[in-house]
Amino acid sequence: MTDRPADSVLLVEDDTHTREWLVALLHRTQGVDRVHACATLSAARDWLHEHVPDIVLTDLGLPDGSGLEVIRLAARHPACEVLVLSIFGDEAHVLAAIDAGATGYLVKDGSLDTIEDHLACLRSGGSPLSPSIARTLIRRTRSPVAPDEAPPLAAAEPLLSQRELDVLTGIGKGFSYGEVADMLGMSTNTVRTHVRNLYRKLAVNSRAEALYEYNLRMAQTGRLPIR
């Protein structure tokens, strides 16, 4: 993305090795100008109080709180890309992060070596959408059975267009963007655009419900819910 002004990046990661590795990686990445790294929620909060980064990378499990808090703070700025750092890209955490306002996630495995590609990919279409997340999204649009405080999604106006639903269905079955594009007779870029829109819509529209659903799932699997 050479035509863009250089980005400033906020990295929130409590594991020292990972943080240092990522900082080094980001410094090598073209288009990244400044990198600020924090290890705690409070440090990130303080920093965000005075700065507006272009990109935020955050882990979810921080020693003094949840990374979702960082996502919410950063998501107040529409121009800011908020990415979750996830070990497996496991869906429960990623979904909660998306609902908090994240626009994508990065998987902390060897594939991050090419973080430049990832960032470019995020710019054009958000993170890859896993089948599991896609299916969760489909379920959510189909069943407006939500707690009282959450507005029913499919009530007045369907949240997703038919095309977006088709894309989601294809991804949900485990097909790649390219395969989905072939099946639906559209370009891979169009699929990416749909996916990006999906992230946006979901981040804006279903926070309360997603949090409820996430917490429900946490409770069912015996883990602590996110406040």
Binding site: E91, S130, P131, S132, R135, T136, R139, G172, K173, G174, F175, Q220, T221
Partner: peptide, 19 residues
């Protein structure tokens, strides 16, 4: 993946595996 109680039909399981 096998622990997700809502993703237990063969299509969902294999779709995720393929991904």
């Amino acid at each position: 993946d096998s622990l997700d109680f809502r993703e237990r039909d063969p299509l969902a399981l294999l779709g995720s595996l393929r991904f």
